[in-house]
Computed example of a mutant assay.
Amino acid sequence: MSGKFMIYGATGYTGKLVARTARALGMRPLLAGRNEARLKSVAGQHGFEYQAFGLNDRQALTAALSQVDAVLHIAGPFAHTSQPMREACISTRTHYLDITGEIDVFEACAAADAEAREAGIMVMPGVGFDVVPSDCLAAHMKARMPDAVELTLAISGLGRMSRGTAKTGVESIGKGTRVRRDGEIVALGSPPRREVDFGQGPKPAIAVGWGDVATAYHSTGIPNITVYFEASPELERMASLGAIGRWFASTGFMQRRLKGAIESQPEGPTDAERREGFAVLVGEAVNEAGDRIVSRLRTPEGYTLTAMTSLEIMRRTLAGRAVPGFQTPSRVFGPDFIVEFEGCTRRDMNG
């Protein structure tokens, strides 16, 4: 292996943060993306090589991937970008990592397992805050309760979103609240609600279609999975949309309006906001007998953690620790992988 990797989508908020972190770690990625002027600017700040091309240019994409051993794909929404990148990685035998949190993308990557194994490459979507901490927490809950039949994950502390994350959220409005029931992903007409103690007493929380609805099942085999976010005014407004409201918000006209409004927002959290921010994740597992265990995980702010975990997984991939086929972070690196990072602490509350 050459030990060389590509960051595709290096000019977005997260891409620039990951590139900056890579330089601080002494890594030298090839930066790539569609906009040559922006790429030149980002690459020039760090002394990195760059290549500009779109994912619809298969010849240029294949040529670029042939120069590297692995790609860290950061350009979303991944519903549009994952497939062409993943297929090109399989054809060039290039390891594929991305930072998606989109359920359909995880399931599409899982469906490509046989192709990835045949190519001898690892396909690991979700190597950032989506879904490293929650996936490791899910695996930890499974280890604590091997006979668990129900898994609940709850997340607090999500601050300002990047524009890319917000646009991905807008595209998912029409899909309802997705959960896993009896091993199958189903959409609920209205989101379940409950209270969750994130460390300062019970707080209202609302179910969301987070990536672990897909990945936690692949990591643990637990058949019933629900993911909650701590309630916020924005989430409450989304949850209050009925079927007609979700349909209207998913029309082309409204999607364009909503995405246009996102473009006027700040690119993402400031460095100060990221330094001060943190997230708390709660895992709860229940077995057939009704026994219940709870664990709590605290991490750095989400975008900061994404840069940390994605680059560490890339480092391990280049070091020969990739496992061919579709993989989740905890399946390859174990449930304790997350607590190896500075600022990540886990506590078992009972059981």
Rank of each mutant, 00 (worst) to 15 (best):
L25P: 00
V18H: 01
D69M: 00
Y13I: 07
G15P: 05
A22S: 05
G44R: 05
A88G: 12
S82N: 04
T21D: 06
G26K: 10
G26Y: 13
Q83S: 12
Q67N: 04
D69E: 14
G15Y: 06
P77M: 05
R34E: 09
T62K: 15
E49Y: 02
I74S: 02
A63E: 15
Q67D: 13
L72W: 04
H80V: 08
G44P: 06
A63W: 06
P77R: 02
A79R: 12
R38E: 15
P29V: 06
A37D: 14
D57P: 00
G76K: 03
A88F: 10
A37P: 00
Q59E: 15
V42H: 05
D69L: 00
R23Y: 11
L65I: 07
T62H: 14
Q83M: 10
L17M: 06
G76C: 05
H73F: 05
P29D: 09
A79P: 00
A32P: 08
K16C: 10
Y50K: 08
A75K: 02
T21P: 00
A64G: 09
K40D: 12
A52P: 01
F48Q: 11
S82K: 01
A70C: 07
T21M: 02
H46F: 14
R34C: 02
R20F: 00
S82L: 01
E49G: 13
Q45P: 00
A22M: 04
G76M: 06
H73K: 04
R38S: 14
E87M: 03
T14Y: 01
E36L: 05
A43N: 13
L31W: 12
L39D: 10
A79C: 01
Q45N: 09
A60H: 09
M85Q: 07
A19K: 01
A43D: 14
Q51V: 14
R38W: 08
P29L: 04
D57A: 01
F53S: 07
G12Q: 03
Q67M: 04
H73V: 04
L39I: 10
C89S: 11
A19W: 01
A32C: 11
A75M: 10
F53C: 04
T62I: 12
